[in-house]
Nucleic acid binder design. Structure first.
Length: 244
DNA sequence: AAAAAAATCAACCGCCATTCA
DNA sequence: CTGAATGGCGGTTGATTTTTT
């Protein structure tokens, strides 16, 4: 992949990097560092602009960079941090050793955004039906780990909403206003810690086709709150659900 | 098997903040 | 204080690969 290399009107090379260029950049930075990216290509014998060198180093050549697939734990962390920090990719990337901000951003747009959107749509749908009847969700009947985590989550969600209810009342004199974001983060962190006792969640396989219907009692009062999420959908990525 | 569509991801762009003369 | 230089960031593009039709 990459763009076709070419020389622009200023004599600066652009597009995909060659192995020879990579070697020159790597050798120079490893020996002299990069006190000035603008000047670097001149001394390193490269026809690139400094910005291009910087990008190549940070996103591709820098030691310790991870290549390849993201682990479930990494994806879960990205989603959680995105929830907390928004689109501050560089800040998010600092929490993922070996991943560049560009890489994280790409992964989000290519893989994770869709999952979040899909989840939100399902959440909205379930919210619509809340108050009319109980809402049903599918859960595997074959994987005991999933059942265990689901049960745990159901309990935690219930507890979560109770706590949030108190916080909400304390913090908001205006009933239409939202709960303070930091409290949500803290709540979320608590939940993360509670989930650590279920390490097997990281190695879950996609749910089997055969599943049964699991019914919960939605809490009407908080149907529009951020934690009104149902994470027990039969997705192959359902483990991400608690953090939406 | 071929064409079309979708996915991937490296690289570029433009803007903003900071530093420094 | 001002303006140029620089670094850094998020948004976007586009060539290539993979998947689907």
């Amino acid at each position: 992949m990459g763009r076709t290399p070419f020389i622009d009107k200023n004599g600066i090379k652009r597009g995909a990097w060659s192995e020879d260029e990579d070697n020159k950049l790597r050798a120079y930075v490893e020996r002299f560092g990069h006190p000035n990216w603008r000047q670097l290509p001149k001394y390193a014998g490269l026809m690139r602009c400094g910005k291009s060198c910087r990008l190549r180093w940070l996103n591709y050549l820098r030691p310790g960079l991870k290549k390849g697939n993201y682990s479930h734990e990494e994806e879960r962390l990205i989603i959680k941090l995105h929830n907390e920090l928004g689109i501050r990719w560089s800040a998010i990337a600092t929490k993922l050793p070996g991943r560049s901000d560009n890489d994280v951003k790409n992964h989000w747009h290519a893989h994770l955004k869709k999952r979040v959107t899909m989840d939100q749509q399902l959440t909205d749908q379930s919210s619509e039906s809340i108050g009319q009847s109980q809402t049903s969700y599918k859960v595997s009947e074959q994987d005991p780990v999933i059942r265990e985590v689901s049960d745990h989550h159901a309990h935690e969600t219930s507890r979560h909403l109770e706590v949030s209810s108190r916080d909400h009342d304390d913090l908001c004199s205006d009933s239409s206003s939202q709960l303070n974001g930091l409290d949500w983060i803290e709540e979320d962190n608590n939940y993360m810690r509670s989930m650590e006792q279920f390490p097997s969640i990281n190695s879950l396989e996609p749910l089997p086709d055969s599943s049964f219907t699991w019914t919960i009692n939605p809490i009407d009062t908080f149907q529009n709150e951020p934690f009104d999420h149902i994470w027990t959908q039969p997705f192959d990525n359902f483990w991400t659900q608690p953090f939406f």
